[in-house]
């Protein structure tokens, strides 16, 4: 990873992007709590498989310890899904583009208890990224940063293997930060404007973390109320999150 220039790293991260995904099942009107949640969880399950493949393609990720790889993905999966959703929706004010065949406006979430609050936060984040005219190169770097930064304050390494993996992770985080700085520098801004843009983009990640936490809470409630059966991988990722927080 250290041998790559920021530009080369951005190229690698762009190439790691998952393919466009389709739901392939029409969500029929009238929407119900169960049908909307079924579509959203079905999509999340498909996207999780692609996310693991994406993470493995980020230079240096598979050199981390398996335990770090697992923890990073467990901590950030919903943030990564949500940033992807925000990116797909950035040119569609007022709509959330889950897939090309599943586009919802905020009111269409009203049949699912508690989801409109989350839709509104996602739409607000999308509007902010629209204002900032987020570029694709910046988006892919931000998504990689979410992954690499996700468990920084959760686990503290103890064994030599864990310490080595943590050192690699920190180097990787620096490299992706440099890649983001490079992506911002291409826009012809002054140095001052570049620093401000970097701060604005990174500050939005705390908003994404907040919405993700709300989303985890919501999905746990839906699971407890048996609104929707959860698929194996999604269930595993949700359980990991609720175990960490409890």
């Amino acid at each position: 990873t250290l041998a790559l220039t920021p530009e080369q790293l951005v190229t690698c991260i762009m190439e790691a992007e998952p393919p466009e995904i389709y739901l392939m099942k029409d969500l029929k009107k009238p929407f119900t709590e169960s049908s909307v949640m079924m579509s959203l969880t079905n999509l999340a399950d498909k996207e999780l498989v692609l996310m693991i493949s994406w993470a493995k393609k980020i230079p240096g990720f598979v050199e981390l310890s398996l335990s770090d790889q697992v923890h990073l993905l467990e901590c950030c999966w919903l943030e990564v899904l949500m940033l992807g959703l925000v990116w797909r929706s950035v040119d569609h004010p007022g709509k959330l583009i889950f897939t090309p065949d599943l586009k919802l406006n905020r009111d269409e979430g009203s049949c699912v208890e508690g989801i409109m609050e989350i839709f509104d936060m996602l739409l607000a984040a999308t509007a902010r990224f629209r204002e900032l005219k987020l570029q694709r190169e910046e988006y892919v770097c931000l998504k990689a940063l979410i992954l690499l930064n996700s468990n920084m304050c959760v686990s503290s390494p103890e064994s030599p293997e864990e310490l080595e993996s943590r050192a690699k992770l920190l180097r990787l985080l620096d490299a992706v930060t440099d890649a983001l700085v490079w992506a911002i520098s291409r826009k012809g801004l002054t140095f001052q404007q570049q620093s401000t843009r970097l701060a604005h983009l990174l500050m939005l990640l705390s908003h994404i973390r907040h919405v993700s936490n709300k989303g985890i809470e919501h999905l746990s409630n839906m699971k407890m109320k048996n609104v929707v059966p959860l698929y194996d991988l999604l269930l595993e990722m949700l359980d990991a999150n609720t175990t960490h927080s409890s």
Binding site: V49, S53, K56, S67, Q69, V70, L73, E74, D239, A240
Partner: peptide
């Protein structure tokens, strides 16, 4: 349960050398 038991699918997909695709 051990970490590996709790995260069977995630472990399998991470360790699988072939490209992961949706089932």
């Amino acid at each position: 349960s051990s970490l590996t038991e709790r995260h069977k699918i995630l472990h399998r997909l991470l360790q699988d050398s072939s490209p992961t695709e949706p089932s």
